[in-house]
Design a protein around this nucleic acid. Structure first.
Lengths: 222, 222
DNA sequence: TTACTAAGTGTCAATTTTACACTATATGCG
DNA sequence: CGCATATAGTGTAAAATTGACACTTAGTAA
């Protein structure tokens, strides 16, 4: 079956940069391409838009198909469509970024990808297409948004300690923060609630456990 | 001539929300559609992407063709592609917003539009497609960006007084500002330079004239 | 019981933001 | 020519916010 148009049409894809925190680092989910072009290179999960699905649906579907990952915070990033960015045909790519709670995701390679794996941002392999630019801009956006919204909560598991949360902010902002000032600030947002007490790394005082009041909504603050 | 693909392809368009300041109001450039669908309704300037032009080029070309307007600050907004948003075929729209210096633009209707005109944001006519949503989001972005960048300068003519600039900020932020505090703040950014002295509305002291130091670049501040 | 280690907590200084009112200098008119 | 008018232009002090800083608490483990 073929599809015919009076004027030439570009193909439309979505690509998703999925971030998570592992080993105290921001890591990114990549798939290894099973087909040409760029066969064998690592790339962002993504693929062609189906003709009757919404853009965001497409991003979620491709992510699920290629990596087994679903139910993430997802936000549109920007759209990129330089002629010749894909050797096959004109491709417009609508990019998204997504955040996954720390260590909560099992990744499974799907049909279109030979392999899916996490990479620390500081040790990315060579990337297919212009995916390096997409990643750079996604990281910029994430760092910026951490300053004026509760987006960082999307990287947390359901419950967490304030020290763990502080560590996430330190990684996103790439600087160390004062413990007392951080706690004053984060609690003053009224976006957290206490739930119980637990112990962590052995021989010391256990930390109180908190949860986000609105775990499914990113609040704009200040 | 026709174009054939193995899989269905959506059409891709760009749409541009052009803002300017006229009569102490934020106004928006609309065209009246000459063809169906929505013939006779007002819409954002925009149109189909040509197969070998970049997205931003397309936005600029359509703007020029339909309204005669060119050389504006242009920034991508977001991409929208709900199935059935256009009755003809699946259409993905990459939206932009643009800013025009006050009262400096002559608008000329082009071939695809019966008419092009400015509308105060508070008095928009009924709009074609989902263009009302695009406008709402463009205005949100503009208001937000005025707080942390020099984007407002893009609404100014080459030279202007501080009172005029303050008035622009007051319109964008929809609140009145203290004159002394505004001047302290805007001058502390080191983004303006003085050029000479002029008089405005007759019988009073004339204001100093300023110009943006980097009129072609939007600086991120604070 | 003691040593260890991260959790948890408050105050003061520095900086930033906000509130606020008068003088200066041009035009236009009598 | 001088006086009325109207916007341009200017500084300071209080309030709010941000940033720096160190010790006590409460568990675990040996």
């Amino acid at each position: 079956m073929t599809y015919t148009y009076e004027y030439p049409h570009p193909a439309v894809t979505t690509d998703v940069a999925v971030f998570t925190l592992r080993e105290q680092q921001l890591q990114l989910l990549l798939i290894c391409r099973r087909h040409d072009p760029h066969k064998g290179k690592w790339a962002l999960p993504g693929g062609f838009l189906e003709i009757d699905e919404d853009l965001e649906e497409c991003a979620k579907r491709e992510l699920k198909e290629e990596t087994g990952v679903s139910d993430l915070y997802l936000e549109q990033l920007f759209t990129l469509g330089r002629p010749n960015r894909d050797p096959r045909e004109r491709v417009i790519s609508v990019t998204y970024y997504a955040l996954a709670p720390a260590n909560k995701l099992t990744v499974n390679a799907g049909s279109d990808a030979a392999e899916a794996d996490w990479f620390p941002l500081s040790q990315l392999p060579e990337l297919a297409f212009d995916h390096a630019e997409i990643i750079r801009r996604a990281q910029e956006r994430l760092a910026a948004k951490a300053l004026y919204s509760t987006i960082a909560f999307q990287l947390m598991p359901e419950t967490f300690t304030l020290s763990e949360l502080q560590s996430v902010y330190e990684i996103l902002r790439n600087e160390s923060l004062d413990k007392r000032n951080f706690r004053k600030w984060i609690l003053s947002l009224n976006q957290l609630e206490e739930v119980g007490g637990k112990q962590r790394n052995g021989n010391h005082r256990p930390a109180k456990i908190y949860r986000a009041l609105n775990p499914n909504h990113v609040e704009i603050i200040r």
